[in-house]
Design a protein around this nucleic acid. Structure first.
Lengths: 191, 191
DNA sequence: GCTGCGGGAGAACGATCGTTCTCCCCGATG
DNA sequence: CATCGGGGAGAACGATCGTTCTCCCGCAGC
């Protein structure tokens, strides 16, 4: 097996197991048996579990950001671009293996404690906030709206994860629409 | 030492440690040394770590609900009663040991897995939703608003926890005010 | 065919943790 | 004062886990 495919299989297998049961509850041996990559290779590619976790989170960060960006860029209207983030959430929450946001969950499990893992989670959420800040500016809305949209998105993730239901995405989208309507700069135009 | 005070000290110590570092990262021995209650007594009162965790979560659930209720009932105006929930969040997030919502964190750490602990977390969040549902009905607002406020509250908890900042409470409160204003049934009266 | 050698399978090791057991002290009771 | 029982301190036990080590197979080069 190629080293690159082994790496990919490890990251995908580890992400699936971490997502399902948490990080600490999954042993390296289980990642080995589920991925089919031997322990020797595993430790060649990732010298410790911490580094594997970091790599999984970094990859997840890239995947999520790419998916969100693709959704956003499918629209031209600045308001639609903002709502597209919530459409992404809706599609995500409907996936059968959805079990909440990896970064919120990881923070809950390992949080407080310093270290690279916490930094990655914080940076990921900061990126979400930055995205909303840019979209809000492009839509000509007041800066404060970005923070409110960030809270709506994170709240939808947390609520959907715990309740095991995708409906928070639609509810958050609807709230975002109301907030957008309340700050509409130009006089008319319906959504 | 009285059995009741031992029980209280155990629950408070365990909560503080779980809040700070997560559940799995805290050993029974550390709870013993931090609480000053011997292991024998600990296992007399809570025959297993799982039962201690359950008791801690149940107590936390009661404490939070009592605090929120007190804040809400300090106001008469139905709109103020809704906003009081976000004032509670603001006061909570400012406490130096705040590290996110215990139930969101616990779900992230142990989630997915069935069992009493997950049930308690889900029930706690359902209670928050029920509270908003009642407050929204009393304020004469449409039902959908309750879900949106729930998402705002949970989002403020998750965002404040990860960012380590209390400002999401104020941002969520401001968003809630906008949502309330957008659905105001009677013609006038300023907030 | 023989020799290395890279990699796979899984045993082994040391640490940690939940839980139980042992030993000892102390205070109450006659 | 002797006895007895409950509780404290901490050792002990068995399981799990991250990490390393051992053994062996299959294949490249001569």
């Amino acid at each position: 097996m190629d080293a690159e495919t082994a790496r990919t299989r490890l990251l995908e297998t580890a992400y699936a197991l971490f997502n399902e049961r948490g990080i600490q509850a999954v042993g390296m041996d289980e990642i080995r048996s589920a991925s089919g990559v031997s322990l020797k290779r595993l430790y060649q590619l990732f010298p410790s579990k911490d580094e594997l976790v970091e790599a999984v989170l970094r990859r997840r960060d890239e995947d999520v950001r790419a998916s969100v960006t693709a959704r956003v860029e499918a629209h031209e209207d600045p308001e639609e671009r903002i709502l597209a983030v919530f459409d992404f959430l809706d599609a995500w929450f409907r996936q059968p293996d959805f079990r909440g946001c990896t970064f919120i969950n990881t923070f809950g499990e390992l949080g407080g404690v310093a270290g690279p893992v916490g930094d990655i989670a914080r940076a990921h959420k900061q990126d979400l906030r930055d995205l909303f800040t840019a979209l809000v500016a492009a839509a000509g809305r007041p800066r404060e709206l970005a923070g409110q949209l960030t809270i709506l998105a994170n709240g939808a993730m947390a609520t959907a994860g715990i309740e095991g239901s995708p409906t928070p995405a639609r509810q958050a989208r609807s709230a975002a629409r109301t907030l957008l309507a309340a700050t509409r700069p130009a006089p008319a135009r319906t959504t």
